[in-house]
Design a protein around this nucleic acid. Structure first.
Length: 340
DNA sequence: AAGCGGAGCAACCGCAACTCT
DNA sequence: TAGAGTTGCGGTTGCTCCGCT
């Protein structure tokens, strides 16, 4: 047996509220309050509406001091930052914005802010790629043509550069063979229970333990790949993107079931869009708390394999790799934002 | 001028949490 | 303490408007 309906659905009116209904509801609540029972209220005042509908109408439109539209830049920023922090907890977000309702903010996010934020990320990503190309060249010049760098060398490069640099996400270690054999879906060197200690001030050298623990980053910066992606980002109307077959590194990343990640802005590490069950998606990871905080589906961006990490996010890099490895086993959940 | 498609938004729905008896 | 009733929330739907062809 199912739950009893909250009202007699056959006898309640649906659809937009008329001015008369608004006036009836408003004047009653202003005089008597809600009486603590929304379900009983419409009957009491002779409205053929569901109690839930009355409640929604009052909270979202009729109660005093409600603001509609005209979101300011400050409000935009606050909504974006709260969304990044806590996700789609609209009621909590609305509580931080006096006069705004959760429904309004939700609609505003879905119709405008989401697109605005994505556009900003695209621009920043393009910019970051430009900087990263010079970083890679610098790294290659200093090391000749070597393609393997120790983890400390990578971190050292980060510390020297005020800009994000591109590194492939795939990390190898000396023990990779054994660990991969035991758990092929996770990058081998980060076991779930393993903790990485790091400095908080972002300036001190990373502990040598990292090197001992994780072995060597096999960085194989693929500048041509970065150039491809840069061109893509500059030409957002482009509808065809490089496939894994055109980029050997992309293929290897996909083979590990480990998505590419980019790092914009400071403490959030974003993946670039990739195909998940036929849908373009990306995810973000909170570098401080090392948890995935959002996933989204985007349009007109293709797969990529490069990893951009902002220097300030550097200290959590290893931990987040570990976390991502775990998180990414739940790729089918990665549709929280829905840019479809 | 008519038709179409996309954007914006009000409202609905289902479910989980909370409250009351 | 259990179960029924109510509230609150987030996802989704569908209507309206507007711009483009």
């Amino acid at each position: 047996m199912g739950r009893a309906p909250c009202c007699d659905k056959a006898n309640v009116k649906k659809g937009p509220w008329s001015p008369e209904e608004d006036a009836t509801l408003k004047s009653y609540i202003e005089k008597h309050g809600t009486g603590g029972n929304w379900i009983a209220l419409p009957q009491k005042i002779g409205l053929k509406r569901c109690g839930k509908s009355c409640r929604l109408r009052w909270l979202n439109y009729l109660r005093p001091n409600i603001k509609h539209g005209g979101f300011t830049e400050d409000e935009d920023n606050l909504i974006c930052s709260l969304y990044i922090s806590i996700g789609s907890r609209w009621s909590i977000i609305a509580a931080q914005l006096p006069g705004r309702t959760d429904n309004d903010i939700k609609n505003y996010w879905n119709t405008r802010l989401k697109k605005k934020l994505l556009g900003k990320q695209r621009r920043e990503f393009t910019q970051a790629l430009r900087h990263s190309r010079s970083s890679i060249k610098q790294l290659e010049n200093s090391k000749g043509c070597e393609t393997s760098y120790s983890i400390n060398e990578c971190f050292s490069l980060y510390r020297q550069s005020p800009q994000p640099v591109v590194l492939p996400l795939l990390v190898e270690s000396s023990t990779s063979q054994e660990n991969q054999a035991s758990n092929s879906s996770l990058p081998h060197m980060f076991q779930p229970e393993e903790k990485v200690s790091y400095n908080n001030d972002h300036t001190q050298p990373i502990s040598n333990n990292l090197e001992e623990k994780f072995g060597t980053f096999h960085c194989t910066p693929d500048v041509s790949c970065a150039q491809n992606h840069e061109q893509l980002c500059e030409n957002m109307t482009c509808s065809s993107f490089p496939s894994s077959s055109s980029c050997p590194q992309l293929g290897s990343d996909l083979n590990t079931n480990f998505p590419a990640i980019g790092g914009i802005p400071e403490e959030i590490m974003y993946s670039m869009p990739q195909q998940l069950d036929g849908v373009d998606s990306f995810s973000a990871v909170d570098m401080v708390n090392c948890s995935r905080i959002s996933s989204s589906v985007s349009e007109n961006l293709g797969e990529t394999m490069s990893c951009i990490i902002h220097p300030s996010a550097l200290t959590n890099y290893g931990v987040c790799h570990q976390k991502m490895a775990q998180e990414w086993t739940y790729l089918d959940e990665a549709r929280l934002l829905g840019y479809s």
